[in-house]
Amino acid sequence: MSCWETLTDYGLRSIGIGERLLPRSDFTLCQQVVLIGSGMIWNVYFGLVALVTGFVLATAVALGKASGQTVTRKLSEWFIFLFRGSPLFIQFFFAYFAFQSLKSVSSVFDPFSAAWLGALIVLFLNTAAYSGEIFYGALRSVPKGDAEAADAYGLSGWPRFRRIIWPTMLRLAWPAYTNEAIFLFHATTLVYFSGFPAWQQKGDALYYASYFADKTFNPFVPYPILAGYFILLTLVILSCFGLINRRLNRHLPQEQRLRVKFRPNLIR
C-alpha cells in the first residue's frame, strides 16, 4: 500500500472518515505519521475552542477578582483556586463521572459524557482559571497614568474599559498568555487518558501514539513523531501570538515592547 493510499484511508480517521479498522500488524512509518497526525485534529479542536471561549470567561474572572464587591471577588477567587489548585487529570475524571451520574437524571446530559463536549468544558473552565489569574495580574499592573488620562478625557464605564484598560491589560498579559496557550494545547493530550473514552478508536494524537507503542513495543518511533507534531504546533502558536503581540504593541517604540519568551511547559 502506497503512502498516498494510507493518507486517503487514515488521514481523517480520528473523526471517523475513511478506513474503519486500524492497522493491526506490519506497521509502516507512513501509517504512524498519518494516524498520529490525524489525531492532532482533536488536539487542535480542543485547544482552539477552549482557548477562544476561555478567553472571554478569563476576562470576566479577572475583572471579578479585581472588583470591589466582596461576593464577586470571593466567587472569582474560589473559582481560580479550585481549578488551579487541583490536577487537571482529577478534574477530567471527576467531570466524566459527574456527567455520567447526571445522565440518569435527564437525557439533556447525554452528549456531556462524550469527550468532544465534556472534556471541552473542563478544559474551558481550566484555561479560564489559569488565564484569569494572568489577566488579573496584568490588570493590577496597568499604569496609574493611563487610568487617570482616561478619566481626564471624560471616559468612564464601558468605553473606559474597552479603549484604555483592556488593551493595556492584554498587552501586559500577552507574553504569559502565550505560554498559557501552549500549556493548554499540551494539556489536550490528557483527554483520552483520563475518564473520557475514545469512541470507535477516534482518539487524539497521543492515543494513536500509545496505540502504536503498545502494539510494536517500540516507543522510539511513535513518540518522537508525536513530539515533532507538537513542536510544529508550538511554533505555529508562537508565530500567531507573536503577530497579535506586534499589533498590541504597535504604538510603542521598539525597545519598550514586551517580547514573547517561550518558557518550558509544565503539567497542570
Binding site: H186, P219, Y223, A227, F262, P264, N265
Partner: peptide
C-alpha cells in the same frame, strides 16, 4: 537536556520514558 523537555507535552515523556528506561 534542558531544551529537549520544552515544546513536548510531558505526558508523552511519561509514557515514553517508562518503556524506554525499562528496555
Amino acid at each position: 537536556y534542558i531544551a529537549i523537555v520544552r515544546g513536548v507535552p510531558d505526558i508523552a515523556f511519561f509514557l515514553f520514558f517508562v518503556i524506554a528506561l525499562d528496555q
